[in-house]
Design a protein around this nucleic acid. Sequence first.
RNA 1: GCCGGAGUGGCGGAAUCGGCAGACGCACGGGUUUCAAAAACCCGCGCCGCAAGGCGUGCGGGUUCAAGUCCCGCCUCCGGCACCA
Length: 881
Amino acid sequence: MSEPTAESKSEPKQVYDPATIEPKWQRFWVERDVFRTPNPGDADFDAGKPKFYALDMFPYPSAAGLHVGHPEGYTATDIVSRYKRAKGFNVLHPMGWDAFGLPAEQYAIQTNTHPAKTTAANVETFRGQLQRLGFSYDWNREISTADPKYFRWTQWIWKRLYERGLAYESNAPVWWCEALGTVLANDEVINGRSERGDHPCERRPLRQWVLKITEYAERLLNDIDGLDWSESLKTMQREWIGKSEGAEVDFDVIGHADTKIRVFTTRPDTLFGASFMVLAPEHPLVDAITATAQRGAVDGYKKTAASKSELERTDLAKDKSGVWTGAYAQNPLYPEGDERGRIPVWIADYVIVTYGTGAIMAVPAGDERDFEFAQKFDLAIPGIFAPATGDAEADAKVAAGQACCTAEVPYAAHCHTADGSLQLAGLAMAEAKRKTIEWLVARGRGEAKVTYKMRDWLFSRQRYWGEPFPVLHTQDGVELVPDDQLPVELPHMDDFKPGGVPESPLIRAREWVETKDAKGRPAQREINTMPGAAGSSWYFLRFCDPHNEQQFCSKAASDYWLPVDLYVGGTEHAVGHLLYSRFWTKVLHDAGHVGVVEPFHKLYNQGMIQAFAYEDGRGGIVPMKDVKEIGDEAVHATTGESLKRIVTKMSKRYGNVVNPDEVVGEYGADTLRLYEMYMGPLADSKPWNPKDVPGLYRFLQRAWRLAVPEHAENGAIHAHLREDRDGDPALEKALHRTIHKVDGDIGRMAFNTAIAAMMIFVNDATKAIDKLSRGQLLRFAQLLQPFAPHLAEELWARLSGEGLLAYAAWPQVDPAMLVDDEVEIAVQVLGKVRGRVTVATGAAKDEVLAAARAAVAGHLEGKTVVKEIVVPGKLVNFVVR
RNA sequence: GCCGGAGUGGCGGAAUCGGCAGACGCACGGGUUUCAAAAACCCGCGCCGCAAGGCGUGCGGGUUCAAGUCCCGCCUCCGGCACCA
């Protein structure tokens, strides 16, 4: 680099220079604790203000540092936080670290660096990066889930779950990889092979901790209705919970006295059409009922099913498979000896052992899957419906059992029991279901039943870097570590390598594992650790009272701050994290520790920031280092082949990852914040376009020059801004309009259009710069503050605004300033704009029409006006003949 | 397959309740300034057409004085779920 020239040396101060402004204010905000938020009970707490809790999904502090996706949501909540502060709210806007997790442990295995050490270093990086973006977090409330002062309470909450019967041990299958000698998480296994190294993996049962989230299924489902979340997200949660209402029905197995098979069905009304039964291959009764002649086939099928991964078994368009057990079951609706009631029992892998009772009654006439199965294996398909849709051919097919019908149609006349105690013909579906269940209940053959797809939450991992369970195993069973001995900390270990057994590496920390219980008896510590979602299931509570050493969070603090008023994050947590957090909140509520039953009132999902990539003729993506961009065209740097631009995920492989630090280095944090908000609606996915970034920088420069002339000495502001005087009335109007627009846009999270409105104001003000007053510019700085806080605070200071802009009140809108004296009205003839007229606001209809007629006289000539439509203040439409 | 969401200039997007399609930004073109360049500023910029005018919000229909917006039928893309009885 050459020495700076004399010219560039004397340049500085007067040009907008984020590199000096931004660090200055960042230091100021941190050193003076500008964004510290007092809690109820603190000396400087103002109980007169309403509260607002704006929360980001806290990040996992990865070694890669922040990517441009993080600041998108963070900027949105920061804008709302700064806005709400200016509007007179007590704002809780915290940040912390989801610090337990696999990558740190992997890194530890590779480099022998303790996860605590790498995590601490990554946190430093993340905090620094976030502070360089000017977010108004209250850093006094910073928390880390891996901090013993934090996970002490994660353990404490877990104990409360245990005490309430919501935590239990179970033998659940885990992915075990022989070649790697370790247990893998679900997402590390692809098609039954390890992601790393592509080694075969198998499911092995292992003792695990499980949380009984299913006990809360109904409440988790019902309370979705009151949440201010997107419909699509609510739908995802509802479908995940997957409630089904129906009945369980008992079938006797013919020739096996005392053996009943219980099935679950949502269509008890189709019981007359049950022509076979299917058990999951793993169903416990399979062995007992299998006939000798079928034993070989059944065992073979079971073996094949067991070796298939869940993915293979539930594979899409795959053919149905199954084998007959040789047994028959008795349909309870038909008398013994009636051929229609004697149905074969099959096993097939399309029935899942963990759902319902793991057994179904197959009604091919009313269920597509059963129909397909019946056709493939040539099983009876008795018709049970008598549809009258008007399509005679289709109706006849359904009646004859040649087609499957899942819609609500009339039942066939023969759908009745021999003694007439149950008759379905003429009933609506709901009624038929009810009557059938009644009939079954009266005879002890079944009952109404509600089933959920959601399963209990597998709550342990065979890993080192997670929260230890506060649990001891003694000869008498499980014993909890007393509250006053929490936290149970991790032992120090130097070697995290998997030990070749399907257990956590903690098993090798002998001195830690072998301990004594409260009575001095030998005990072993639990070696499973908690999953990543443990700490994140309650962090929003800890933020309310982060330093409390007596409680996880005082009731007073959570009563004041909860629920979270605005929660912003990605859709990837649509079911996992959000469901777990709702579950823990409800449990803590039931235990009397938290007032609310739902933690997150309004939730907003930001879209993904994508990137451009270039595709060659064969549809392969060419890494950016091999792409040469010439104007609008792009070619392969070596072959010269012309390439097609596409939008895709940012990926290291494609070399199209944008590093926020580089953007900050070149244009400053305010430009980055503005650009990310200006790209498009927050909820949409949209591509990062480096060419667009300077546009936002230019906007900030223009805003800067409203105060500081381009060639000023020592950055002195315009002379006419040094004193107070009345601002230009036209600019005053424009300003009020802008405030009004920004107000509304922040309210609906439409930050892109709010910025557009401010751009319009800056353009207007630039054109009339000599008429701009100090008061007007101060108010504009307030408007800009949530979006570009550094520049706004600097402008405020240079214009000698009172106190700190961060504490200043939001500017007022005078409704009178939003109305004009005159409006321009479009004049249409037959719906096409043919002219325009300017009339006084609120002008009489006749007056408007007269002016409009005159404006389009040429188009009306020789025509008859048959209708006149006047939309006040907007348009006039003449319908002519 | 099922359930969501979306499709608007060369690009990102705007149009909040059925009322002037294309705000704002980028790119591009022209100009001012400059020895020159950058920066900055001004003007232009949906498509066809010299113009008058016509066409235009994925495609095809419909409702309406008026449709990007509402209704019916398709197509494409993105996200989620996926044999859940």
